[in-house]
Amino acid sequence: MDSFDSIPDPIVIDILNKVSDVKTLIRCRLISKRFNSLSTQSDSLLLQLDQILGATVTTDSDSPISNFFKSIFKSIHCLLPPIFSKSIDPSQILTRSPKTPAQILSKFERIRNLEVELYGGDVKLEKGAAVKWKAQFGETLKTCVIVAYRSATVNTTTETVTETTTETDSEFVCGLKTRVVWTISALMAASTRHYLMKDLVKEHKEMEKLTVYDRDGEGTVVMNAIGMKEYRETAAREMAREIEKGVVERVAKERTVVPSVRMSMRHAPSLKLKSGICLEAATLVVVRPSGGGVVSDDDNDVELATEAFAGDGGDCMYGEAVTALLKRRRNVLEMNSF
């Protein structure tokens, strides 16, 4: 007898949880009947969605959201293992492959913690600019923290963080437009990722945490158990209302609607960090749904921003920038739902 057969199922499942990669676990199902059964019982999973090499290049006229969905849906077939020993026409693989993450994971029965890695970021910015964001969702957006800058240069001197220069009115207005565009782009990217996971959240009711991020480290969407339960209950109520009204056709959507929000925005025309990096037009935005009474959010801003970039501690550029920008003057803006 193969000595591996004597290992108890719980230990094998624990090993498979350490593997986590969905692509590998799907291939494990082909090894034997036992592996076919146990692989789908893993509760900690990593689903990587890779872009197809040689895929059709998108044109400049395509919107970032459209490009995002096209690349995602075209890439999912790469996750599927070869099922038959004989060669298969690639066009047949594309037609047979699932079109959503929910379909890829339909055979996994006990998902508790799921990480979804996308092929790359989807916020299109001018050359040299960068944006990093983290959004918390339930049925809709709960919070979003955004850090962005127009350009970064490295200086040889090592001085403490300094706040330099003042802006003219025209420079402030021009910079404000850019910062609002960055914020809207990040919110659209976050709401698109949230919507992409809707079927997955509905079907896997035991899931406790869902994290969606991209390989470039641009943005992260997080849903906890409470947020996912809230999302399912809201979706069920909406479905019931539609059935009650006799609504048959649904309006096609590409993303979750962003609610009316209140934005706490801090910025520095030029921000020099202790590491010697100088960030031009450095910006920190903390976004929350508007409503509820007028309350000072200064302390809450610190908590949210620090928590969002807790993994990017003081030695990291983003963590250091957040700490410095939290000391700047706060501008509060309201934005309608979109």
Rank of each mutant, 00 (worst) to 15 (best):
V123R: 02
K33R: 14
K177V: 07
S71C: 09
V251C: 10
A186L: 00
T234E: 10
I93Q: 10
M1F: 11
Q41T: 05
I146L: 09
R288D: 02
D5S: 15
R179F: 06
E206G: 11
S42A: 15
Q51P: 06
L333I: 11
P8G: 04
V221D: 05
V154E: 15
V180E: 01
A281G: 06
E109L: 12
S97L: 02
C174L: 11
A148Q: 10
H77Y: 12
S66N: 07
A186W: 03
K74V: 08
G313R: 14
E167C: 09
I72D: 05
C144D: 02
T164W: 08
L45C: 05
K272G: 05
I76H: 05
R262Y: 09
M228T: 02
V161Y: 08
S6L: 14
T234G: 10
T143R: 07
S20Q: 15
S264G: 07
V161K: 11
L279H: 03
G291L: 08
F338D: 08
C78M: 14
V221N: 11
Y318K: 06
R329L: 07
V181G: 09
G120D: 04
M1Q: 12
T95I: 13
Y119C: 03
E163D: 10
G246Y: 02
P90C: 03
G217A: 09
L325Y: 00
I277R: 05
E139F: 06
R255E: 06
M207I: 02
D301N: 14
R110V: 01
H204P: 01
G121P: 04
G313E: 13
L49N: 06
